[in-house]
Design a protein around this nucleic acid. Structure first.
Lengths: 168, 168
DNA sequence: TGCTAATGCTTGACAGTTCAAACATCTCGA
DNA sequence: TCGAGATGTTTGAACTGTCAAGCATTAGCA
């Protein structure tokens, strides 16, 4: 277990640094843009747009958390805030007494539609205007590959039984 | 100024969703790993490793903020925390009365070296094991392209004089 | 020399996130 | 049908990051 780690080589280090740098910059940039122009976080925007893209604009909390790749706790806090702001509503799940549903309100739809053009514009400037068609495709594949890897890794760490020989 | 926005097409949307998903997962994963195994944030780790890679392990606050792509304010808070933890020290800049230097302490070096193998291992599992050599190169180029675009965009928004016809 | 602006950094209040612990409901087997 | 564990969600405290405002020092220039 304590073999020398395989350090990153020059190319990997270059890629990793580029990723850290641009993801830091991009996250900050999108948050600033949305906060300034629409009074919301990028996380808020993503949440609202997930709801808006679904029939009836309703989704169970757990399902929404899964889609957003965030913890339920974080989602609860976020929905509380968005409910206070009038953009989202809670609703009991008629099918499961434990369940809660999150619904986009009329106002939520309006605010999202108001914010969307500026946000898309920012994303375009920062990302897609800088990439070739080919790179857009590459980014999709790289992102999906890493996403899949993370799902596998998390599965292992959450449920050690999957890999019984793993330490801890 | 109020032309219809150029929405993302299918390929762009795919890339964007993949990016949002994997960057959320990856950030959380690295933070969890480092917090559990080394009691620090990924931001802390990045800060310490920047200091460690520089002669004498000293860097001015502004320069460090620039390299980390974070605000000075955020860096001040982070360095305060790391100083309280004994991993970093502050020092006056002998060359500029306003300047402050951040130095890695002996303990900081030790903690970083202790944390490094596990962190590299996590990065490898989540990222590089999932990508081909070719994709690593593509990721570097994509990252650099987006980073450059963001620098340009930020320059424009910070200093509107650069582009006098721009709104606001 | 003496201003004024630019630069370097910090501060404090607030907003968003994390983690562990709690609570409620449901499921399924004895 | 009873109880234990699984599942769904919330809570509160601690922590990290943001923003606007502030203080100190330096640079440029009349």
């Amino acid at each position: 277990m304590n073999t020398t780690p395989r350090w990153l080589d020059a190319e990997e280090r270059r890629a990793w640094m580029a990723y850290i740098d641009f993801s830091t910059l991009l996250g900050d940039y999108l948050n600033r843009q949305l906060r300034r122009d629409a009074g919301m976080t990028h996380a808020d925007y993503t949440l609202l747009s997930h709801l808006s893209s679904v029939p009836d604009h309703v989704l169970g909390m757990s399902e929404l958390a899964r889609r957003l790749k965030i913890t339920r706790s974080r989602l609860t806090h976020a929905v509380t805030r968005l409910r206070d702001a009038g953009l989202v509503d809670r609703r009991e799940d008629p099918a499961d007494g434990r369940g809660q549903l999150a619904v986009l309100t009329e106002e939520g739809i309006a605010v999202l539609e108001e914010a969307a053009p500026g946000h898309v514009d920012a994303v375009r400037r920062a990302v897609f205007d800088a990439l070739s068609r080919e790179q857009v495709r590459q980014l999709a594949e790289i992102g999906e590959a890493i996403g899949d890897a993370l799902h596998r890794v998390e599965a292992v760490e959450t449920d050690p039984a999957v890999l019984p020989w793993r330490r801890r």
